[in-house]
Each structure stands twice: as structure tokens, then as C-alpha cells.
């Protein structure tokens, strides 16, 4: 039996009169590569922030890495990594200083943090830049450092919220290869949100979110088969009656 990494029941969030997320039921298995696909404003980021304990749900419950996101928020945060849409690095500090700062926030002792930082810098191709200020890095390198920061404390679940947003195609491709490699790393559950269909294709399972509600859930192959179409783009169109690209632009 596979363990559950994320378990949400009737999870929802309102901002005033606006219903950002309806009632989401979701299960993500341990070590799964899970994609949440939907246009901007569909509720993807709200979902991630609810699961990462940064927002309190208006209704429903969620457990992440075995902990209730409301009652055990610190325990939950200890076991998850979160990479935001926008960078969270201190631009004035160096690559290494940023990771050292994060290591202290996550309560990693120096003797653990040192080798771990070396390992991540090598893995993410940042070893040569470790003494450079973050402000001098390219967008792609900053993103890679953001992800390295998210993995520093060896989380069980890694949330990547639109990790390739704002990157040029080349940086997007190399970041994508990095994420693919992470995925094969042992035991890490990856929860990815994206509005790029091609990024959802390699996921084990994909949930299609539209206007705060789940429109479809399954493996990319299942979704395509069920909708009788050949691409996830067409699945979105079939399920919501609107093309993904158009709603993204809107």
C-alpha cells in the first residue's frame, strides 16, 4: 500500500465574497509527481498556500506529510519545501549566504548544513557562483537557487508553484531537466502547479483546476482517453468548454 503525502477533503478558501477555491478533494501519493493544471486565477496558488499552511482554509481539512495543516502548522512546514512563483532570495546576499540563512531558519546545525549546501550547489550547477551576490545571477540560476533552498532541509513534499514562470525558453528547458532529475530522486513527492500543458505531460497524475473547482483528475493518458482527445490542452477544452491558452491570457 502506498502512503498518502497530501490528503485534502472539502478544502476551500474565500477571500471576502470571492470564492478562490470551492471544495477540493485530493489525494497525492508519496513519491508521486503530481501536476495541478489550470489557467491563472483558477485557484492553483491558493491551493498550494492552503496546503503549505500559509492560508487558513475557510472550509474543509487537509493533511500534508501526515500532519494537519491548521492544527500542526509548524510540523507541516518542517516537512515541506515550497518554491514560490516569485523569488524569495535576498538579492544583496551571496548564493551561499542565502542558503546559510535558510539553513538557520530550518534549524539545521552547521555541520549538517555545510555538506548539504555543497551538495545542492554542485547538483544545481551553482558551485562557481557561491560567493556572488544573487543580484548578479540570471533568472534561471535564481530559480535553481530557489529550488535548492526549498530542498535544503530534505522535505518529504516539494511544492513548485509555477516554477518556470517568467523564464526564457532556454532557462525553462534546463530548469525542467533539473526538476525531472529531482523527480527520480528517492521518495520525494513533487506537487507542481502550471498553466503550461507541456509541463503537466510528464506528471504521474494531473488535476485540472478551473475557477476554483476540480474539472478532471487522472494520469495524462487517462484524461486524454476519457476526453477522446490527444493532448491535455484538448482535455482542458473538453472539460471546461474553454481553451487553456485563452483563459490564461484573460
Amino acid at each position: 500500500m502506498t502512503a498518502t503525502a497530501i490528503h485534502a477533503r472539502g478544502l476551500g478558501k474565500d477571500f471576502g465574497a470571492i470564492r478562490a477555491l470551492g471544495e477540493l478533494d485530493l489525494e497525492v501519493r508519496e513519491a508521486e509527481f503530481f501536476g495541478l493544471l489550470g489557467p491563472n486565477g483558477a485557484g492553483k496558488t491558493t491551493t498550494v498556500h492552503l496546503l503549505a499552511t500559509l492560508l487558513r482554509p475557510t472550509r474543509g481539512t487537509a493533511r500534508v506529510a501526515g500532519h494537519d495543516v491548521v492544527r500542526e502548522d509548524l510540523e507541516t512546514r518542517r516537512r515541506i519545501g515550497l518554491v514560490f512563483q516569485e523569488t524569495t532570495l535576498d538579492r544583496d546576499l551571496t548564493v551561499e549566504q542565502n542558503l546559510r540563512f535558510a539553513a538557520r531558519l530550518w534549524n539545521l546545525p552547521g555541520r549538517v548544513a555545510g555538506p548539504r549546501i555543497d551538495e545542492l550547489l554542485a547538483q544545481f550547477g551553482l558551485r562557481e557562483r557561491r560567493r556572488d551576490a544573487v543580484r548578479t545571477l540570471s533568472g534561471g540560476m535564481r530559480r535553481a537557487l530557489d529550488i535548492a533552498r526549498g530542498l535544503l532541509h530534505e522535505p518529504r513534499v516539494l511544492f513548485l508553484d509555477e516554477p518556470t514562470a517568467g523564464l526564457d525558453p532556454r532557462a525553462r528547458r534546463s530548469l525542467w531537466e533539473l526538476i525531472q532529475r529531482l523527480r527520480s530522486a528517492s521518495g520525494l513527492t513533487v506537487f507542481l502547479t502550471t498553466h503550461y500543458v507541456e509541463e503537466a505531460e510528464p506528471c504521474d497524475r494531473v488535476a485540472v483546476l478551473d475557477r476554483g473547482a476540480l474539472a478532471a483528475l487522472g494520469t495524462p493518458a487517462e484524461l486524454k482517453r476519457a476526453a477522446g482527445v490527444s493532448s491535455l490542452e484538448a482535455v482542458f477544452l473538453a472539460r471546461t468548454g474553454r481553451p487553456l491558452a485563452e483563459s490564461t491570457a484573460a
Binding site: 503549505a52 500559509l54 509548524l74 510540523e75 512546514r77 518542517r78 515550497l82 514560490f84 516569485e86 523569488t87 524569495t88 532570495l89 535576498d90 538579492r91 535558510a102 531558519l105 530550518w106 534549524n107 533552498r149
Partner: peptide, 14 residues
């Protein structure tokens, strides 16, 4: 504004 506060708030500290 720079986003660093988000890193701090997502850390497992009160």
C-alpha cells in the same frame, strides 16, 4: 516587497 519575508514565514518557526 523583495519576497524574503515569504521565505521566513514558510520556515517552521512561530
Amino acid at each position: 516587497e523583495a519576497g524574503v519575508l515569504r521565505m521566513v514565514l514558510v520556515a517552521p518557526i512561530r
